[in-house]
Nucleic acid binder design. Structure first.
Lengths: 343, 343
DNA sequence: TATTCCTCCCAAAGCGCTTTGGGTATCCTT
DNA sequence: AAGGATACCCAAAGCGCTTTGGGAGGAATA
């Protein structure tokens, strides 16, 4: 049924070598010949056998994924979304995944196993923490990898894709300050994750530029679920000096926060302003909130796809991708932000 | 560094054939010889090269996964948990995954591609709907598969692992009836998914046995998030004739429901009874609820692991697993259920 | 004209396994 | 003692690619 290289070569009156080279972009093939080969491929629907390629090249054509199974991260909605992007791209190139569920305390062993097995050409990791030890481990194992996010401290020369979290929350905070807000709350992700740390830093910086301080009592860290968003916001609103604006590290958190605000009888955009970071989760669009949400936006799925591209490009040595990328999040102003009340 | 079969055979003074056979459990190998081989494997740390095995056997040693990216399912917490179980087992056997994100309307094309690619030996699917067309498609493609859940209607002879959803919710409802409850609400999963349909059926059956009816106004279907649990419960409690007991299709839904109940100033276990289905999500334990939750329990992760076992067992033709399994969910009574108030 | 240098192509040798198709003892039968 | 099982083992042929090491022919150089 499916043709193989040998048959294809025979059919073309060429050697396997030439056909293989034509397909893999080697220069020592006549342009005309290459065109013929490509045409034949189209006609026959030839697809190289991955198992044979693996054996011949020694490449695994697959990438390792260490799934965190710590509580609070485990089964995180955001992880699924990222994964979808990663997979979407990988499937185009016939790349496989080796999924490794692993508790944080034996991630190192998992990496070692993965590297030794030869089952993967590269590894992807996420949920970076401050001084994340995994970078050093992966470097010492000399297995290619790309990090989603960045560590804070530790080595600086490693491949990553991150968004400018500091900048995003700096911009968002600056907007709020311009609108007259001084008491700004932050409902953040887990405090040990570097994106949380950076977002907080962005808020602090914007405030300090105007001689203001971030009240630590108005900062909560938690898993990014709707439930925690609700709880945090309730507690903020229950204070004698509630904030006039709140930043949320995810639209999921914002969902809960908005509920708490509504329940308190406050109007979003006038009584209190809300800005959330939008990972572009298809099931939770900020423009569909009862009051459309001002957001800093960066697609998690796009990041997944990009990382897959870079990993795969690296493995196949094609394409020239930057080692480190810092995506800027867009600040999109909608109705949930307004001037501070009583001004 | 890593030894291969040839070297191992040489070292043992045996042929590759014999060593290979010893390892793969063929009978025509002397027990003593086999022991020697196994010992040598332990000493050298020999591990067969998967790429070579793939090429030689024509097996892919990997399983296809079609990730639903429909809204409401997408990035579902429950999916991640199931996946962890699947992966946990797969990684033990060096099995890979081919992750295929796919919108429901081109799942068929995805299956075809997957089957034709030869990249997978088997496929796994979930989120079964009533009269789910995917079963027929997979059968016609004659690619081995295992379904998590069951369809309703359509062919009956296909491999699945499901829990007895009807039975679980029948039992739960029966318990409530015994406690004197008549007005029982149901916060269910999406209405097109077969587990939702079956759970509802269980409730109806238990009620009807006692000459009672399920009030359709007390049934909500939605994605299984905490937010929807909250909303549904609020609406139930806002009715002139609120329920005295509520069944939730997930502890995630229960989380929201419980919040709504607390907010209404009602006491769980006395004013209102709550039973939830517990998928054993590590981050959400029913015993940790402020009032420990009565549940019907069945571990999603265990189901994932079991399906992986069956899939892999089928591919390697080892182990003899049943084609169809129906797991019974345990009814675990905790403090959230009590006699109907005012009796 | 003789030599070198490209350009374009090929035969054949792996990659590391599984599997086919025997082969050689040894042990029963009759 | 001849014939037939039976128990163990082996050499060699793939699986379908990539890659090495040329080689033929024409163009460019001397």
């Amino acid at each position: 049924m499916a043709v193989n290289l040998k048959q294809l070569a025979q059919q073309l009156g060429l050697s396997q070598t030439t056909v293989s080279r034509a397909l893999n972009g080697y220069p020592e093939v006549n342009a005309e010949t290459r065109k013929r080969v490509l045409q034949a491929v189209r006609e026959t629907g030839y697809r190289p056998n991955r198992a044979a390629q693996r054996l011949a090249t020694g490449k695994a054509y697959s990438i390792g994924l260490v799934m965190p199974i710590a509580s609070g991260i485990d089964s995180d909605i955001h992880f699924g979304e990222f994964l979808a992007g990663l997979a979407e791209e990988a499937v185009k190139h016939d790349f496989h995944f080796v999924l490794n569920p692993s508790a944080p305390d034996d991630e190192e062993a998992t990496f070692r196993r993965l590297a030794a097995s030869g089952n993967v050409d590269a590894v992807f990791i996420a949920y970076m923490r401050a001084n994340d030890p995994r970078i050093a481990i992966l470097k010492s194992l000399s297995i290619p990898f790309v990090v989603h996010g960045r560590s804070i401290g530790g080595p600086r020369d490693y491949p990553f894709l991150d968004i400018d979290n500091t900048g995003a929350f700096y911009d968002a905070t600056k907007l709020l300050i311009q609108l007259g807000h001084h008491r700004i709350a932050l409902i953040n992700g887990p405090d040990y994750l570097s994106f949380s740390i950076r977002r907080k830093k962005g808020v602090v910086r914007a405030l300090e530029e105007k001689g203001l301080r971030l009240d630590e009592a108005l900062v909560h860290h938690s898993a990014m679920t709707d439930e925690y968003g609700y709880r945090s916001m309730r507690r903020f609103l229950g204070r004698p000096d509630p904030p006039t604006a709140v930043l949320c590290s995810s639209t999921v958190l914002a969902l809960g926060a908005v509920r708490a605000i509504n329940q308190a009888g406050l109007a979003i955009g006038s009584d209190i302003s809300v800005i959330a970071h939008d990972d572009v989760l298809p099931m939770l669009k900020p423009e569909n909130f009862s009051v459309p949400l001002t957001t800093t936006r960066s697609s998690l799925r796009a990041a997944g796809a990009r990382i897959a591209k870079r990993l795969i490009g690296g493995i196949l040595n094609r394409g020239d991708y930057p080692e480190q990328e810092l995506w800027r999040a867009e600040l999109i102003v909608r109705a949930s932000t307004g001037p501070v009340p009583g001004r």
